[in-house]
Design a protein around this nucleic acid. Structure first.
Lengths: 226, 226, 226, 226
DNA sequence: CATGAATGAGACTTCATTCAT
DNA sequence: TATGAATGAAGTCTCATTCAT
């Protein structure tokens, strides 16, 4: 009755399916939000039928969680690994982490996850807990840990760590949110080149952070002048 | 069912209807998002029936746009008026503007508007232009104008204005977004008292902004030591 | 877009709807069973649209329960009232109750409820409890009470009441089940006129099968000749 | 997964497949009904995969019919064999047949067949004719034949055979139906031990309810004469 | 023969919107 | 104006059935 197509898709290996579906789901969720994305669209974009999606994910909500896990968990771990192994100055480490984050997350569809979370978390209470544990806490630990390292080594002043962490994270997170909301709709004429923002941010913040009197602090000058 | 109120009050109410509906819609949209909010709920919260809602707004989509428009216009005027009339130091002006913004917007349901915008612009392209013109640009002008004022008056160093503006706005905006998403779902254990954040932010940023050698700037020291 | 029909249905009073839907549902459930009946069919038979059904019953399952309640509860009470007020012989009361039951239940679509219960109760555990309390127990009380009355008044032998009750109920219940299953599919050539069955059942039960006086039983012959 | 069994057993299993599938299907259909039973469940319970089921039965519907047919043939043969060979009194034969039936059918999953038939004949009209020919008629012949035998031998009064047959069959059949519907859901507090029911039924039917010796029993006359 | 990934028709349910009153 | 009963398109998810391996 329907068997007109010899269904070449059948050939594809079962193992590849989840990733294909997750990629399709990420793109659609980022573009349209969770509830505005229809399951069938996700399946179609992954090149399979509606039913196949449900072979791999028991519900749209679980698909969503899998998308979050798949695109965030690994990145946090990776950053922490880099930090743990790092041997240079704390300022260099901050720059490294932030640039890496932008390249790998902010500038990617993965960055759109923050928008989805922000938009939908109140309708999926269990997601809140998950997101707090898996994303917020580890990310906070990574950044505040680096600040503390700088303070302990006498590179930074003894600033309030919690607030400073917030200040370092916020602009980049907002860049990511922007990129997937207004930023995706056209130009405002006020666009900022994110890498430039990152450097400006560190420069400005470090004027505040950097310990007061390395006497002639030649390095600070150089950084600021860049 | 509600018609216990005498006629004169009803008259007054009639004219107030759109505002009541807009307020109800704002609360619900902020709490649940656009598509998860049912028209009937909005009507019920405004104390009218489903049909009445459609007497004032031709569709849920138009209601949504009206909510956004209605809750943003006033925000801008407010700040600009304060700034234009201000005569003190630029640092004081910055502190004033930011604290006022938090009190009047960030800490209010109005702050939820940003979440709605972020979540839904891509599904309502016409909102993008509107939001850019009515919110982004004026807000940018206000903050960058204050920065420029500080630079011109020799209070601040000649920092890159665009990036610095972004840095000043971002943390507070993010606070507002947070308050209406994860922040509304329970505690992360990482909460920050927003007024404290604002001060910390200005302190830290000003260490970077403040022109290097105003001879002996005792005040800066004090702020930083906090 | 669709408004071609001036929808005369709109006129009908809200109060009549539930009954119309319940009637339609009973007919369909009896004919096809619970799961083979589609919600939309029920609505259509009641002359309304799919959505309207859900205005009155929150789910197909609840509709089903309402059908059971609506068609059984009252009937039990009625029988008990008749029994309580009866003053004749216990045999007459049995005949009265059984004929009435057949006329009002067995011979009606309401009798089909037993088939539905039988078929679906295992998939709706809560229904089991409800049915036991609301149907089985009251019906048992009614019949066994009548038997006990006969025994107490010396009209019947002191038979085991529980088993005798079962024997009196079973054939009629089975008639009802039959009527809505095989009986609805065509003829077996073995059909029994239910009223005749009822009388025969009472006669046989009251007389017993065994030939009265193994020697010469002329009366028995007469009965048989009927 | 199961393929641990050596090849010779597998060969034997291959021929046994249809029976294993039919047994699995019977159990599931009895427990959950036709439409609530998923093909895959049946296959799993029979220890094969979904696809294998369709190797033996072209559709779930045909599987259903096969289950009914498969489990009915044996029911008939059994009873008729016993009756044909019997030489004692008709009362003893009745007792024997009924106890045997309960042991071999009523108390078994085979008894669930009646529930299935009752629930689904109307959706599978072809089953009706089959069931009538293969079950109803032979069963009727068996019981009414035994009654007639008793009448002919002067053991029973010349009762109306058709109705008496119905009365003898009904309670036991209903027991079987009950066992697989409400009886499977918990206790009603009114349970009857089936063998006890059988004896009570025969005793009551053979003796009659009426109090033994109202001397010349004038009342009995009246009732009987009706 | 056996498998199980894939399909897609179809079922239940929701809800924005209409319109007679 | 205001109401709320009614509609039906649309979305999520299920499951009988197919077919390449």
């Amino acid at each position: 009755m329907v068997a007109l197509t010899p269904s070449p898709q059948r050939q594809r290996r079962k193992e590849a399916r989840p990733q294909e579906l997750l990629r399709a789901a990420l793109e659609l969720f980022v573009a349209k939000g969770f509830s505005a994305t229809r399951s069938e669209e996700v399946a179609a974009r992954a090149g399979v039928s509606k039913g196949t999606l449900y072979l791999y994910f028991p519900s749209k909500e679980e698909l969503f969680k899998a998308v979050v896990r798949n695109n965030i968990a690994s990145l946090i771990a990776e950053g922490q690994r880099i930090a743990d192994a790092f041997e240079g100055s704390s300022e260099e480490l901050l720059r490294l982490l932030m640039h890496a984050w932008w390249r790998r997350v902010g500038d990617t569809d993965a960055g759109g996850i923050f928008k989805i979370i922000m938009a939908e978390v109140r309708n999926f209470p269990e997601l809140a807990q998950f997101y707090t544990e898996e994303v917020i806490r580890p990310a906070y630990r990574l950044v505040s840990g680096t600040l503390q390292r700088g303070i302990d080594r006498g590179e930074f002043r003894a600033v309030p760590v919690r607030e400073a962490t917030q200040m370092l994270i916020a602009p980049m997170l907002l860049q990511a949110l922007h990129k997937h909301s207004i930023g995706a709709c056209g130009t405002t004429g006020l666009e900022i080149d994110p890498p430039r923002l990152i450097d400006a941010q560190i420069d400005l913040t470090l004027h505040g952070l950097r310990s007061a009197a390395p006497t002639k602090a030649p390095r600070a000058q150089k950084v600021a002048s860049r």
